[in-house]
Design a binder for these strands. Sequence first.
DNA 1: ATCGGTACCTGCACGC
DNA 2: TGCGTGCAGGTACCGA
Length: 265
Amino acid sequence: MPELPEVETVTRSIAPLVGRRILGAEFRCLRILRGGHPDRMARAIEGRKISGVKRYGKFILLALEGGGYLLVHLGMTGRLLLGGAPGKHTHAILTLSRGVLLYDDSRQFGCLQYSRDFPERVAKLGPEPLEVSFEDFAAALRRRKTRIKALLLNQAFLRGIGNIYADEALFRGGIHPLALASRIRGERARRLYNAISAVLTEAIAAGGSSISDYVDAEGRKGFFQFSHRVYQRTGQPCVNCGASIRRVLVAQRSSHFCPKCQTRS
DNA sequence: ATCGGTACCTGCACGC
DNA sequence: TGCGTGCAGGTACCGA
């Protein structure tokens, strides 16, 4: 489900958690703790007040008063829900001084992690796509030999772009997903940079894309899926030229593009 | 140091 | 109805 716009939407929807205290924590699934011990993790966060909620790429970081962080990654199907009844795939239940926070994740690709210091996994991410300068972006492109689609998915390059927004940004920028990153320069680099900003900004304003079951912490769906121009539109006409949208695998991920509007060089 | 491929999990849509 | 297949917003890890 969740790329930068969806995680941003979820993060905003749990902003009211700031100031509340974690009274109890129950972890039901070992896999999503990534080797962490459920009881030790519960003890580390119980009794602590949440002092901040912030997004870094696709991660959500809950800062705890007195130091320490609860790191959340939603993987493909993770959800943070304020209230509601625990279900079949509810893996964590945080009882708060007001309300309850559930972590739900059918595919279990997400994770919850406690960290005493600022987490290494977050520190090594690339810059935010909406904050990076064009000069830094263009310089980083030039250094990479890989295909642009694979690079956009690489969180060490930019943090937060996933399969939907990579495809949508490449379409708007007129760049083929198999184009070599190092060969995207000048005006093409500028177009891609602007396309990334526009797509992410519009998607955040729309509350993200709800493809199957994504909702924010209040259960609200996003509606940017209605604005997708190529993602999962294989065989449908391009909104610009009418050509049939094609699908190709890049780095093992489906990539949707217009064969006429998007060029390799 | 960078890569591409694979594994990890569940659920759904599809064709037979 | 059921079964097999392929696909799905994610990252981590492996060997080349």
